[in-house]
Amino acid sequence: MTTPLSHYLVLSALLFSVGFAGAVLRRNVILVLIGIELMLNAANLNFIGFWRYGAHPEALTGVMFAIFSIAIAAAEAAVGLALVIAIYRHRRTVQVDQFNSLKG
């Protein structure tokens, strides 16, 4: 494997900033959630990259972290999307800047 580790880390940084930009800029709340998922994926890539190129790959630390991160991200996506559906029922919209009143 002759690709330097920095290439993986730069890819991860780019993915993270793209996800961040999307989460901050787009108005649709589902796209915000997609941005969050991209950020989590970028962090996972970081973990796996450092695990593979690190000093002790047989300790499997990066892999364990990534596995739990994937599981938790899935749970968070499920709850987030359920919240989106519940909010849609009240507000009839999925634009983030319409969620500006705490009156239920």
């Binding site: 998922e37 996972n44 990066g62 990534a66 596995i67 899935a74 996506a77």
Partner: peptide, 22 residues
């Protein structure tokens, strides 16, 4: 990157479940 389990879990969870949820 030789992380077989994580790659397969990523396909199973993200492509197979999160994308469909979205």
């Amino acid at each position: 990157l030789n992380a077989e389990f994580v790659g397969v879990a990523q396909l199973l969870v993200y492509v197979g479940a999160v994308a469909i949820l979205l």
